[in-house]
């Protein structure tokens, strides 16, 4: 315990601003995603603190599997709310969850390779965030268009369009898997 306290003091003393802000970003993204995804009844109940901890953990240990688990908790919450509680699929919630999930993911990827005590050039974080914002913007446009179509084309025609889109997405996944083997 004494060792842990002295180690923590050392970490706090050596920590630098930008890596700390990156971790703050991970924590904020995780908290927003988890509390938007889960139903209000559960999030405000006794399990709310556990959900918060699962969202904060990747900020503390970005190199482990915590970020994957936190993302799965968010997805689980979204399914519980929409399937279990029959909540309406609102555009703002899909947009917020998709954006914060991705921001948390990419900031965790940055924090995993960025030591907490590093002297960081501003362009490192700036370039990283700019690329993430481009991805988020493209996804947001796609989300707005797709959900708009879903409202207009409710029925069989939409089901076919969805299936075709899914087939493309599966193709993308296979492509990713191939890229991993090449890397």
């Amino acid at each position: 315990m004494i060792k842990f306290v002295s180690r923590s003091k050392q970490v706090v003393a050596r920590a630098t601003v930008l890596p700390f802000l990156v971790r703050i970003g991970i924590a904020v993204s995780g908290l927003v995603a988890v509390y938007v995804a889960w139903p209000l009844d559960i999030a405000s109940g006794p399990y709310g603190a556990l959900l918060g901890l699962s969202a904060l953990y990747p900020a503390v240990a970005p190199r482990g599997r915590a970020a994957t688990l936190a993302a799965l908790v968010v997805v689980a919450g979204w399914l519980v709310d929409t399937v279990g509680f029959d909540a309406r699929v609102a555009l703002w919630r899909v947009l917020t969850i998709a954006t914060t999930l991705y921001l948390g993911h990419t900031l965790t990827a940055l924090a995993a390779v960025l030591p907490y005590d590093a002297v960081v050039n501003l362009d490192v974080v700036g370039t990283w965030l700019a690329r993430a914002l481009v991805v988020v913007l493209i996804s947001a446009v796609l989300t707005v268009v797709a959900l708009g179509l879903a409202t207009d084309l409710a029925g069989d025609a939409f089901l076919i369009a969805t299936l075709a889109g899914l087939a493309g997405a599966v193709g993308a996944t296979l492509l990713l898997a191939r890229l991993i083997r090449r890397a």
């Binding site: 997805v75 979204w78 969850i97 998709a98 991805v135 996804s139 899914l166």
Partner: peptide, 19 residues
């Protein structure tokens, strides 16, 4: 589940990886 919103949640990850 026949849910397009789940596909849209996956979109940023797929787009980010593709870019």
């Amino acid at each position: 589940l026949g849910r397009v919103d789940l596909v849209l949640l996956a979109a940023p990850f797929a787009i980010g990886a593709a870019i």
